[in-house]
Design a protein around this nucleic acid. Structure first.
Lengths: 239, 239
DNA sequence: ATGGGATTTTGGTATAGACCAGATGAAATG
DNA sequence: CATTTCATCTGGTCTATACCAAAATCCCAT
């Protein structure tokens, strides 16, 4: 669309990116404030901010509202085909995972869920909303729906750990097939709010439908990830 | 991060989104110019633009440089596990695909490629760069590397169609396994330039390593998609 | 040390204006 | 009719300023 040459904000972006790449600023560290960055060259704050937005889009830095801009930590690698919980694979990568259950309620199956689960409208379902963090930074919001007839009493358990292991050890539920849909999205409204990011931050929307060996839908999961927090890796045999 | 209530740009975003949802503006149509939108309410152009950026992030609208803002067409569904070419599945979804070969050259295997292909440094490789469009809009840029010893003379062929079918019909190459990495990214520099989008537009970076039945790497593919052009759908058996 | 309240700093939102370069379309030209 | 030329419209960049709300910090009283 344009040549990087004469555009000030692209120049500043490259300057800051170079300082980070050189290790002058390390992951988790705060950048100088916008007004300080501005002081250096005779440039307006809007231009500085445009440069910061570029780096944010590239996942190099992120912001904490009204606190400052920080250097991003590396993303975690996530394989949606592996039925290991978030807790295990984040820990396996040397990071500190945290899960918070925002809500867990029993609901009646509506039209959309009826179709997904092949269950009658009105059938009991559990609806769980969780927020998950890595090294203290909220990285994803998920909405999980589980067929209550397969896991009665599920929401009485502590779900701040691995839902996977609860389903397996308590209810003997094994997942045999996964259908995963992925779509780049923008984090807005509830998702942005819960992740405490500015509306419009790029994200990844991940929907997973889990089937047991009999082909029955056990769980439907909708996740919203910050764009800079993950890398998806799938290893598959071609059909 | 904030309540949508009192923020002007979120209000305007919702207004415009509602007009699109109501069918007042249809996919492909141009929105009124920023200065026209501004004329309506006593609001500055910067605020209008912030509202448009939100909608762009959500994939509702897109821009053509210095031409205007347009309503986005629906995304195409893409299954990286299916070894059908872009041309076929885009057409199957009732859209008009186009492939342009930007360059095709023979190169010597460098360190990174040597590792990926398990071939000696200096081994001959073909490097192909293509741009692909849907209904006249460029949606992805790809860089393909193919082991030249498996497909000698490949770049003499016309590659504006399906590379898949050339590999299969001319060289008898079948792909048995795919390793796919996906990562939200920002489209910048060459990618932004080639897709004619503003630097920093959200995108999806997709890397695919293709193995034949003997486990040898046949092809390495790096794709950069516009964020609003696709939805990835994978159906997998859990390991 | 600890807690609490005031102050400062930070990014977030919004305004108004200016100029530019590419896209567009109409008018002039062959 | 096709082509070129030119004025206009469009989004893209940049400046300068103002005010707000939340976060961070400091300082004082306990």
């Amino acid at each position: 669309m344009q040549q990087p040459d004469h555009l000030q904000y692209l120049g500043m972006r490259d300057d800051i990116a170079a300082r980070i790449a050189a290790g002058e600023l390390k992951p988790g560290e705060r950048l100088p404030s916008e007004r300080q960055l501005q002081a250096g060259g005779g440039v307006s704050r809007g231009t500085i901010r445009e440069a910061l937005f570029q780096l944010e889009g590239e996942g190099v830095i992120y912001r904490k509202d009204r606190s400052g801009w920080y250097v991003s930590p590396p993303p975690v690698v996530y394989d949606p085909t592996r039925w290991e919980g978030f807790m295990s694979y984040v820990e396996a990568q040397g990071r500190r995972p945290l899960t918070e259950t925002l809500s867990k309620v029993e609901i009646a199956c509506d039209g959309m869920l009826a179709q997904i689960f092949s269950r009658p409208v009105g059938a009991p379902m559990y609806w769980i909303r969780r927020r998950r963090s890595i090294d203290g930074r909220a990285v994803l919001i998920e909405s999980i729906v589980v067929d209550a007839s397969l896991a009665p009493g599920l929401i009485e358990h502590d779900l701040d750990g691995s839902l996977t292991s609860v389903l397996k050890t308590v209810y003997g539920i094994d997942v045999a097939r996964n259908k995963v849909d992925m779509r780049p999205c923008a984090l807005i409204r509830e998702e942005a709010e819960a992740l405490r990011v500015k509306s419009g931050l790029p994200g990844l929307n991940l929907e997973r439908t889990c089937y047991n060996a009999q082909g029955r839908v056990v769980e439907f999961d909708r996740e919203y990830w910050r764009h800079d927090a993950l890398k998806v890796s799938v290893d598959i045999r071609v059909r």
